[in-house]
Amino acid sequence: MSSTSPLRLGLSRMTGRSPHEPHRVASPLELLFDLVFVVAVSQASQNLHHGIVEGHAGSSTLSYAMVFFAIWWAWMNFTWFASAFDTDDWLYRVTTILQMGGVLMLAAGVHDAMANGAWGLVTLGYVVMRIAMVGQWLRLAASDPGHRAVALRFATGISLVQVFWVVRLAFPPEVQFWTFWLAMLLEILVPLWAERTHPTPWHPHHVAERFGLFTLILLGESLLASANAIIDAGASASSFSGLVLLAITGLLIAAGMWWMYFGFEQGDRMSSSRTGFLFGYGHYFLFAAAGAVSAGIEVELDLTTGAGEHLSLATASAALALPVGIFMLAVWAMLLRGKLSRLGSAVFLAAAALVLLSVAVPVSTVVVAAICVVVAVIVVEARRSRV
């Protein structure tokens, strides 16, 4: 709860919260915000799964990466703003709920975007979320003279980029595709430009907790995929053993990913704006990989049951091995590098490399991935027990 003083109409003055505030934890509103994003993440992973099974692995993976940028960027910008300026009054809550509406609009358009290349609804939902953030920054500019300059920079930069997102929809699909990357770059540059002279007072441990909670949501998708394997195992005697193996290894992979991520306290890694930006931006790869693991497990399920007519062993292997391997590399680069010993890092990276290389070997990728994840967890736990 914010400590700001109440003003007229039940509102509080929006000012920067202390980055050293003790016992700062996620608010119920932030938790609800995350739950709404479950819908968008689920839609993205499900459509990735269907695209791979239907023989469109390359295009589906690229579309997934594009959709996930919108999910990750909108979520992260709200999270960082809330860490620094959350007032928890009725206007702040209403504005946040408006962003949730944008999330649901985005989620509703994911299928058309990934399957048919129709990005209109996804773009509209994304713009709704971002314009709501403009409102938050303008409120800050009006309330806090000390943060007025950075707030106006954010409001201006975000608004201009949203105009670009909307205008590009008037052009043919191929133009929309190439201009997407320019719009994405502009979005990423806005915070770097806005905070160049006056950083916002975000709370390192609060931000670390928020990222951890979103990671749990993504891992929950993988656990759901493993649960589907268990459910199907009870209804299909012909592939019972294969489905049970998939359920066990899927659980090991999801639990191991959790263990790696939460092996050490992460708030102390963000000691400056530079390390904060690296932490936040690097999580795109970690989040996207974690969200794709559930699709990989579902693809393995289709391979086991023979449900995928256009599905090859190599494609199914890549669908699981690539996100698991990328997740491991991202965790090491952002969270474990400097925490593990040189030998520990070498073993951890070797395990990640073996997961990626399993794509080219005619073996059960899900088993190899599970074994490598367990090895990586042993490395993390061995180091953690000495700290």
Rank of each mutant, 00 (worst) to 15 (best):
Pro28His: 08
Leu106Gly: 05
Ala233Lys: 02
Ile52His: 08
Ala233Cys: 07
Val293Lys: 00
Ser12Thr: 11
Ile378Gln: 09
Val175Glu: 10
Asp144Thr: 02
Ala113Leu: 03
Glu309Asn: 10
Ser5Val: 12
Gly125Lys: 02
Gly102Gln: 00
Thr365Val: 15
Ser83Tyr: 07
Phe262Thr: 06
Ile217Asp: 07
Glu381Trp: 12
Ser2Glu: 01
Val128Gln: 04
Gly276Arg: 00
Ala290Ile: 07
His23Tyr: 15
Val387Ser: 07
Ser60Arg: 01
Ser12Val: 04
Gly10Glu: 10
His310Tyr: 14
Phe277Val: 10
Phe262His: 03
Leu322Ala: 13
Gln176Tyr: 11
Met260Asn: 06
Tyr92Arg: 01
Ser42Thr: 15
Gln99His: 04
Leu329Cys: 15
His205Pro: 00
Leu186Ser: 11
Thr215Arg: 03
Ile97Leu: 15
Val103Ala: 14
Thr95Ala: 15
Leu140Phe: 01
Thr200Cys: 04
Ala352Leu: 12
Ala376Trp: 05
Val150Asp: 02
Leu219Ile: 15
Ala115Cys: 06
Asn228Thr: 14
Leu160Asn: 07
Arg13Asp: 10
Ala316Phe: 05
Ala194Ile: 02
Thr4Asp: 09
His283Tyr: 14
Val94Arg: 05
Val53Ser: 06
Leu329Phe: 15
Leu140Tyr: 05
Phe287Ser: 09
Ser222Asp: 12
Gly291Glu: 01
Ser226Tyr: 10
Gly157Asp: 04
Ala142Gly: 13
Ala382His: 11
Leu349Phe: 09
Thr365Asn: 11
Trp193Pro: 00
Thr275Pro: 09
Trp137Gly: 01
Phe327Ala: 00
Tyr261Cys: 05
Leu31Trp: 13
Asp88Cys: 04
Ala113Thr: 12
Ala360Glu: 11
Arg196Val: 04
Leu104Asp: 09
Thr275Phe: 12
Val167Asp: 06
Ala316Leu: 12
Val375Phe: 04
Pro28Thr: 08
Met184His: 01
Trp72Ser: 03
Val163His: 03
Asn77Val: 06
